[in-house]
C-alpha cells in the first residue's frame, strides 16, 4: 500500500470516527452537569481524598502494619487515643497484635481500592471485548456468548467467587482473578446491548464501506461509541467489587492474614466487638462504607449525566 493511499484511508477513517463525536463541548457539558450535584461532588472529593491517602499510605502512616517487627504485642487492643510503649499516640486504637488501626486502615484501603480498581479494569476490558465481538459477529457466536452470560448471571456473584477461592486458595492475585470471573459478564451484556444499537448506525456502515479491517471497525469505531453505559456500569461495579472483596476477606477466603484489607480488619475485630472493643471493627468499617457510598454517589450522577434518555 502506498503512503498516499494509507493517508487517504486514515483521513476518511478519521472523518468517519468524528461523525458521532460532538467534540469537546459535549464533554464539557457532561462535566458541568456532573458538578451541578453537590452530593456527587462531595462523593468525588471523598473518593479522591481516599485514593490519595491510600497511595501515600507508606509515607503518612505512623507505622508499617505488615512489618511484624514494628508491632509490640504489649500494645494489643488499646483504645483510641492511647499512648504506645514507644510513646506515640494510637489515634484509632490498636488490634490484638498491637497494630495501629490508623496505619492498618490506610494500608487496608490500598488493598481494597486497588483490588476493586484492578479487577474492574480487567473485567471491563475482557467483558467489553467479548460483548462487542459477540454483537458484531452475531449469529451463533452471539447466542453462545449470551447463554454463558445468562448462565453465570443466574448465580449470585458471592457464591461463585466463594467457590472459586475455595479452589484457588487465598491471595490478592487470586481474589482479583475471582472478581474478574464473576464480573466480566455484566460488561459483556452491557456492551453487547449498546453495540447492537450502534451497529446499525450510518458511521459503522461508512466504516465498512471503506473496507477497513474488521478488528479496526470493532475496536476503533464500534467500541468507543458504547462507552457511556460502560462507564456507568464500571463505576458502580468498582463499589461492588470492593464490597465483594471485603465480604470474601471477612469470610476468610480472600486476602491473606499478613496483608489485611478492610474486610479482613473488620473480621479480626468482630471477636472483640462483643466485648465492647468496638474500634477494631468499626473504624475500618467506616472507611469501607465511606468509600462505597462515595463511589455510588459518583456513579449515580454519572448515570444521570450520561443517560441520553434522561437528559432533555
Amino acid at each position: 500500500m502506498s503512503d498516499h493511499a494509507e493517508t487517504t484511508t486514515l483521513a476518511a477513517e478519521a472523518a468517519v470516527a468524528a461523525t458521532p463525536d460532538k467534540g469537546e463541548s459535549l464533554l464539557a457539558r457532561h462535566v458541568a452537569a456532573f458538578f451541578e450535584s453537590p452530593l456527587a461532588v462531595a462523593g468525588l472529593v471523598t473518593l479522591l481524598a481516599m485514593v490519595l491517602l491510600a497511595l501515600l499510605a507508606p509515607f503518612i502512616a505512623p507505622q508499617n502494619p505488615y512489618d511484624l517487627s514494628q508491632l509490640d504485642i504489649m500494645d494489643g487492643t488499646l483504645a483510641p487515643g492511647a499512648k504506645s510503649l514507644a510513646g506515640y499516640t494510637f489515634w484509632l486504637g490498636t488490634d490484638e497484635q498491637g497494630r495501629d488501626m490508623l496505619s492498618g486502615i490506610l494500608y487496608g484501603l490500598r488493598i481494597s481500592l486497588g483490588v476493586g480498581a484492578v479487577s474492574t479494569v480487567i473485567a471491563c476490558a475482557l467483558g467489553a471485548s467479548i460483548g462487542v465481538v459477540a454483537a458484531y459477529a452475531g449469529g451463533r457466536v452471539d447466542t453462545l456468548v449470551m447463554r454463558v452470560v445468562d448462565l453465570q448471571l443466574s448465580f449470585p456473584a458471592i457464591l461463585v467467587a466463594l467457590v472459586l477461592l475455595a479452589v484457588f486458595g487465598r491471595g490478592v492475585d487470586k481474589v482479583v482473578i475471582a472478581l474478574v470471573i464473576v464480573q466480566w459478564a455484566y460488561y459483556a451484556r452491557t456492551v453487547r446491548g449498546s453495540a447492537l444499537v450502534e451497529r446499525r448506525r450510518e458511521y459503522i456502515e461508512a466504516a465498512r464501506c471503506l473496507a477497513l479491517p474488521k478488528n479496526r471497525v470493532v475496536f476503533r469505531h464500534l467500541l468507543p461509541n458504547c462507552l457511556p453505559p460502560l462507564i456507568v456500569v464500571a463505576t458502580v461495579q468498582v463499589a461492588h467489587s470492593i464490597a465483594l472483596e471485603s465480604t470474601l476477606s471477612f469470610l476468610g477466603v480472600g486476602v491473606p492474614v499478613t496483608e489485611p484489607s478492610l474486610g479482613m480488619l473488620i473480621a479480626k475485630g468482630y471477636d472483640y466487638l462483643l466485648s465492647g472493643k468496638y474500634w477494631i471493627s468499626t473504624f475500618p468499617g467506616v472507611a469501607l462504607v465511606l468509600a462505597i457510598v462515595a463511589i455510588n454517589l459518583v456513579g449515580d450522577r454519572l448515570r444521570d449525566v450520561l443517560n441520553p434518555r434522561l437528559s432533555r
Binding site: 464490597a243 471485603s246 465480604t247 466487638l273 462483643l274 462505597i292
Partner: peptide, 22 residues
Amino acid sequence: SILGFSLPNFWQGLMLVLLFSV
C-alpha cells in the same frame, strides 16, 4: 434503600449486632 443496596451485607449485620446486642 440505597444504603441497603450498596453497603456490604456483613457490615450491616455487624452494625445490627453492635446496636441490638452490644
